[in-house]
Write a protein that binds this DNA or RNA. Sequence first.
DNA 1: GCCCGGATTGACAGCGCTGTCAACTGGAGG
DNA 2: CCTCCAGTTGACAGCGCTGTCAATCCGGGC
Lengths: 351, 351
Amino acid sequence: MTERSTAQRRAAKGATMADVARLAGVALKTVSRVVNDEPNVRDEVRARVHAAIAEAGYRPNAAARALVTSRTRTLGVVTMSTTFRGPSAILAGVEAAARDAGYGIALTRTPTGSPEAIAAAMDALVDRGVDGIVILEPAQSTATIGHETPGTPVVVFEDRPGDSADWIRVGADDVGACREAVAHLLALGHGTVHHVAGPAGWRTSDARAEGWRTALEAAGRAVPAPVTGDWSAASGFEAGMALAARPDLTAVLCANDDMAIGLIHALEGRGLTVPGDVSVVGMDGSEVSAYLHTPLTTLAQDFEAIAREGVARLLDAVEGREPESRRVSVPVRLVVRASTDAPRIVAGEPA
Amino acid sequence: MTERSTAQRRAAKGATMADVARLAGVALKTVSRVVNDEPNVRDEVRARVHAAIAEAGYRPNAAARALVTSRTRTLGVVTMSTTFRGPSAILAGVEAAARDAGYGIALTRTPTGSPEAIAAAMDALVDRGVDGIVILEPAQSTATIGHETPGTPVVVFEDRPGDSADWIRVGADDVGACREAVAHLLALGHGTVHHVAGPAGWRTSDARAEGWRTALEAAGRAVPAPVTGDWSAASGFEAGMALAARPDLTAVLCANDDMAIGLIHALEGRGLTVPGDVSVVGMDGSEVSAYLHTPLTTLAQDFEAIAREGVARLLDAVEGREPESRRVSVPVRLVVRASTDAPRIVAGEPA
DNA sequence: GCCCGGATTGACAGCGCTGTCAACTGGAGG
DNA sequence: CCTCCAGTTGACAGCGCTGTCAATCCGGGC
């Protein structure tokens, strides 16, 4: 069995550059020049080599090239999850941007999201020879990762300043977005806004909570204790059960759409209506949010733009150009739908 | 700039096996033996080499190893999307299974999903030297891809027989699952079941439609014309608008949960209630489906099991073992929730 | 004490490609 | 007619590692 498969492999292993050179009657190096589109080859020779390449069915050997150039034209991606909307949307954008630039993607997940797991994943990618590393939606603020990969540039999709000065940072303006959502709700007449946060320690959780809190403080409103979820609809449901009892509950900002869906389900189960009794804002702009029983007001992020921006900066660094900027913030758009409305009774003020 | 970055790279490039050999006072080959855990090295020597490895901070060079072994310990993944639930869940499982076996993942997306794009992606992965290829949720039935990669085994996540005899096939039992869903609805008393299918040409669309149709036929029921969507909630909404007018509409099976959500929204917009007027079954077991206004009856797939099974078979082939089986079907589980109920009036029979 | 076989170790030749540098070409300029 | 130079081409030496095969070591059997 093993022998047969080895034989197959050997047979399948096609022509080498030397074969092409022989066929075209030129030197190895000339074939190399043609393959890599280098100048200083006569058109006639170039054509002859191309013909020989076609005839031999030659395909360059990536490992050999990587060995001598010590570049793999591969970007490593570290992500905790591929199922949540944010990471998967950014991953898609990263892959597209990389492919357009002739780079491949090496994917590693770190289900625990711990700093150690992330560091180990980064090391594994470096060992595989990636030219650059993309850190997607890390649970941990990058400040706590603190892992260096000398010689391999890193881009992290977060908007907040961190410790590793070398890292490129690109992120949605979570703080600004949540401020805008709170402003929207206050403008509708709500006395304050409750918050269902993402899990503690996630940078996005922190940023979103910060935007929510500072907006309330700036408006001089009470800041209710936030409830913490884990991004799942189930945790949003539990949060809803907990919040339903609060007397001043008229508006809730959830750190993602899934939790908002769970929350609404819980509120309705307790006899509260949305937006009649409680206004709800989600976050992430998931596609289904527009088609729910009560279409959800949400904060839509342009994940595609974030991804392209990040990959462009990373490739600048990989290819020895100084990145235009090491810190990019992409705006978030508030999409108002049916889940937010004026409160039935304007708290603390005469109607 | 370029010079500096080159210098950095060179400096970052650590010790080689030769450095370690010198440090430990042994031959190159002995270091190689230790690094690869080969037998026939005295414990004392092994320890000395390990010490030298640690001292030098040596890390094996993957490209050099790949060049000489012509194996990269990398699996290529071809997927159309990373945002839909099915592919992203399987991708996660594939990555985990590969990592457990010491393999990395090279990811390529084919947004168009055309046979040409899939074939090109497969070739690109082969050029990058992957040891095996995973085709995730291809839009095209694999029968129409018909692309050979001699020497590189392929696993495709589909349950139906196809043309490429060499390919390993692992998939959910879509046909059986849809039959079960139809049986559930008929048992509740519905006269027939309408169907919102996925886009034409997708193997999952076809399989799900086939299960639905054959179940109706077997029961001697009318088979209404199916409506075609594109997996999105928006297309489900449109399907709902189209179906709402049908007089015999009491039950709908949607080929995924997102379309079911859109469909329900449209029906409710037309004044129909779920499940009062119409029962709806989704498919995929998305997490939010349990937390909708009307929790959705759905067909839950064990994506993790599918992924593990597929990777295990693929690695058998990659490593020269004969796979236990080249064709595996994983059952789907019907999860009954509030969106299905007996019809208000049992069609064609006295109440 | 000597021979034998298995265990251990090492020398060496590549894997397929690119970077360096020398060698060659042909036409412009003197 | 010879020199010079830009434009072309090729010979050669590795990149860092593993496979092959020969050399050496050791203890047991005679």
